[in-house]
Write a protein that binds this DNA or RNA. Structure first.
Lengths: 350, 350
DNA sequence: CGACCTTGTGCACACGATTGCATGCCGGGT
DNA sequence: ACCCGGCATGCAATCGTGTGCACAAGGTCG
């Protein structure tokens, strides 16, 4: 209104004041096609009810001009950033890159991007982090969070949230169904003649540790196996090594371990002690990280389909943002047989 | 102009048409403070030349109202998204989470976010990926890219780019200086009595493989060591295992391996063969991934400070975007001594 | 005492895309 | 011949923030 409106040509010169090459905008393609910006926009968003030839021409021109929509502008007007956040406690824990990979693949298929945040194992920082992410993303997936319950409530109010490997009332969650895996482990150990099986636990207040222990207590007795709790330990290689003494001084012939990294630490230390694994002690881990099969002896373990979990989590959020309601899945786990389990034998007294 | 302009109160009702709770905007805090939106905005961006009391009042109110700036709106007007992209070939390769972690930490300190993209080991897809990232980020770091040279040129024209662990004329790069690490390895092996040392290579056209081989050729002869090339192999555990036969049928007493994962595969297979490591063969890996110290025997290896690399890469980009020019660093590597190296012995003929 | 500078603040436009409403055109029915 | 409906398209407002320029108030100096 203030300036001659007929000129639909190049963006006005003064726009170049600050700002790099500027890129081609909808205005350019509209001008090139001899239509208004509105029409150009609709050529993308409203394929239906549109003159096919006009539409085709616009799209072709957009392509030739290498037009790419400006995400920030879209985000501003639509209120959707088209990106998701993903929070993990520790990237160097081999469990998480798997779920990230899955999440990322699904996100890419859908034209979404993924912001990864690592909390450095600090549950207290997670809420703040979700707050930051909420500004830049439409929703976030919280992975194996050890966030306190009320922080979790607050986070869920901040923006749409989906949990992975944790449950909390009122918050959707992609979970792992330990049952099948644990049952297979029970059958396996029982068949090998074991009767008393230890459980080397992870962090005391971790949700997944509680879930795993519960699975054991639910399934093992039904198969004639006694479960012996062997304490809570740091979920690290060192934590596994340190658990060796407890295991050694118990009278179990087999142990389940909270995760693979710990299990590998435990096995390593026990081998150092001169123990013959699996002859004197069978060990079963949890997760099936890549390295589980690379160690000697290869670790028997309960596989968690973590890429599937990542995919499912973003799939759920994408549906939820689109207004479609869906139920996040509960994923099956299974036992992977390798070399750390064998027939039960008496162990010579420690 | 079309509607009564006096009303500076809440955003106009019709704005609520579509759009969730809407959040509090600069307009809210401006209204609360009794100033214009422009002043409120400047309270943040122009601390200097500002009436201190007004500024303090505005900031306090902003805080009370829980105002958080709308990133998309800022991005639209400033042309800066305040986020960076990071492209890696494979997240599940333990090398990369390390650099991501470093990058992420530095980015967070600076209020930047990081978009991670995994190319699934497909160098052909990388350029397209950078294109996508360029829309949503201000710059991208390309990590150990195997992208062809001209793709790399194109990518660098798309948006500011920094390379990690790769070099290319005209593109800034955070690199690893193999020299110190390789020299230490040479001294170490020589002291242990080795004379002929094999090199188990990675992918044929990989930049880092060329760099590593070059380092060997530059340093080893100077220390009286002969280098024997033992071919190119897949940079995976399996690749390392498959290299075992070549190693066994050569007459070297020690090998350097392109990376730790391969080295671990190689060692595992050789142990399967009944070889006594390190007595019959010394093995040195490259990277110092977490698991290198967890295997038995612990892998002697050349450490790459990968978190530092991540930090340096985003540090460089941040400076570059801020107009400050800097030189991306060349990071020192060092040998980490563990159990796969020992005095040279004749090996009984294969 | 007036001209000029400094300092603090507001007006208005811009960024690039989306979208409700209006408009113009064309054809068919009464 | 006129009106109405459908269809394709344009107008203009809008999202939330940043910033050049104008302008007012107060102070200083000649």
């Amino acid at each position: 209104m203030t300036h001659s409106p007929g000129q639909v040509g190049a963006p006005r010169a003064e726009a170049q004041r600050r700002r790099e090459p500027a890129g081609v905008t909808l205005r350019h393609v509209a001008a090139a096609a001899g239509v208004s910006v509105a029409t150009a926009s609709r050529a993308f968003s409203r394929p239906e009810k549109f003159d096919p030839s006009t539409r085709a021409r616009i799209l072709r021109l957009a392509d030739e001009l290498r037009y790419v929509p400006h995400r920030a502008a879209q985000a501003l007007i639509t209120g959707r950033t088209m990106s998701l956040g993903l929070v993990v406690p520790d990237l160097t824990n081999p469990f998480f890159p798997g779920v990230i990979k899955g999440a990322q693949a699904r996100a890419r298929e859908r034209g979404l991007s993924l912001l990864i945040a690592d909390t450095d194992e600090d549950p207290g920082a997670e809420l703040a982090l979700v707050g930051q992410l909420a500004q830049r993303t439409d929703a976030v997936v919280l992975c194996s969070s050890r966030m306190p319950d009320d922080d979790l409530d607050r986070a869920a109010r901040l923006c749409p949230v989906v949990l992975v490997n944790r449950e909390h009332p009122g918050v959707p969650a992609v979970t792992f169904d330990s049952d099948a895996g644990v049952r297979e482990a029970a059958v396996h150990l029982r068949a090998l003649g074991h009767r008393r099986v230890g459980y080397v636990g992870g962090p005391a207040h971790s949700f997944s540790d509680a879930a795993r222990a519960a699975g054991l207590h639910a399934e093992f007795p039904a198969h004639g196996l006694e479960v012996v709790l062997l304490g809570n330990h740091d979920p690290s290689f060192e934590g596994g090594r340190r658990a060796a003494d407890v295991v050694l001084s118990s009278d179990v012939t087999a142990v389940m371990v909270h995760n693979d990294v710990m299990a590998l630490g435990l096995v390593g230390r026990l081998l150092d002690y001169g123990l013959d694994i699996p002859r004197e002690l069978s060990v079963i881990g949890w997760d099936d990280i890549e390295f589980a099969g690379m160690f000697t002896p290869g670790l028997t373990t309960v596989r968690m389909p973590r890429e599937d979990a990542g995919r499912a989590a973003v799939g759920y959020l994408e549906a939820a943002l689109g207004g479609r309601t869906s139920e996040p899945p509960r994923l099956e786990t299974h036992l992977v047989f390798r070399q750390t389990t064998a027939r039960a034998h008496e162990r010579r007294p420690g």
